[in-house]
């Protein structure tokens, strides 16, 4: 770095460090207030302090939570799925020990998710349902609760907009917001985020061949 440090401080703009102290002091209040921001279903956030009605935050539901995608699309653009219940209606039998044992339309399934077994997430008595560690059954559409059981930190961050991203409005007083489901980004069976090829690099020479300017 060949630039001279700028040690000026303008009187009109208070330094941000000061602001941060104030922010830290209000941290606990902030946490309590935002604990109920989001639910697994589409629920509007509670009214803010000013009493103005806030727009909804909608968590989009991945098609794979409604059934097995056929690869086709309805005229509306929505993916066509075959509901799990079409083939599963509480047939008995233990879950397989390994993904490679799975037959039918699911042949080729791969599971690489910590040391989890099928039973960590699936209800052994209902193929079309999930199950929490305490035995509570969940609909597939409630899968986020399942993830949160083991990944509380990410769920907390998600609830505060610091994991999982969003689209629409930062200001819910002015418009609604949509959010991804965990499963949009993490395949429950192989949750590691995939590597991708990046978009094209900039075509200026900056930071290129040895960090010169333009």
């Amino acid at each position: 770095m060949h630039r001279r440090a700028v040690h000026r401080r303008s009187a009109t703009y208070p330094p941000v460090q000061l602001t941060l102290v104030v922010l830290a002091a209000s941290a606990s209040a902030c946490q309590a207030a935002s604990a109920e921001y989001f639910a697994d279903t589409d629920q509007p956030r509670a009214d803010d302090a000013s009493g103005a009605a806030l727009h909804d935050t909608t968590i989009e539901l991945p098609a794979s939570l409604r059934g097995v995608p056929t690869g086709e699309r309805a005229p509306t653009g929505a993916p066509v799925v075959v509901a799990c219940g079409t083939c599963h209606n509480g047939e008995p039998g233990a879950l397989p020990a390994q993904a490679s044992e799975v037959a039918g339309p699911h042949t080729g399934l791969v599971v690489q998710h910590g040391g989890n077994t099928c039973g960590s997430c699936h209800d052994p008595n209902r193929r079309d349902r999930l199950r929490l560690a305490d035995g509570q059954q969940l609909e597939l559409t409630e899968a986020m609760q399942l993830c949160s059981q083991c990944h509380g930190t990410q769920r907390r961050d998600y609830d505060h907009g610091a994991h999982g991203g969003m689209a629409g409005h930062w200001d819910l007083a002015r418009g609604p917001r949509t959010r991804n489901h965990c499963i949009h980004c993490h395949d429950p069976h192989v949750p590691a985020y995939p590597r991708v090829l990046p978009a094209a690099p900039p075509r200026d020479r900056f930071f290129g061949a040895g960090a010169g300017h333009e």
Binding site: L23, S26, A27, C30, A33
Partner: peptide
């Protein structure tokens, strides 16, 4: 104080 950005500043 209820914004996501404030939560990040206070908790990260």
């Amino acid at each position: 104080p209820e914004s996501e950005i404030r939560w990040v500043l206070a908790n990260k």
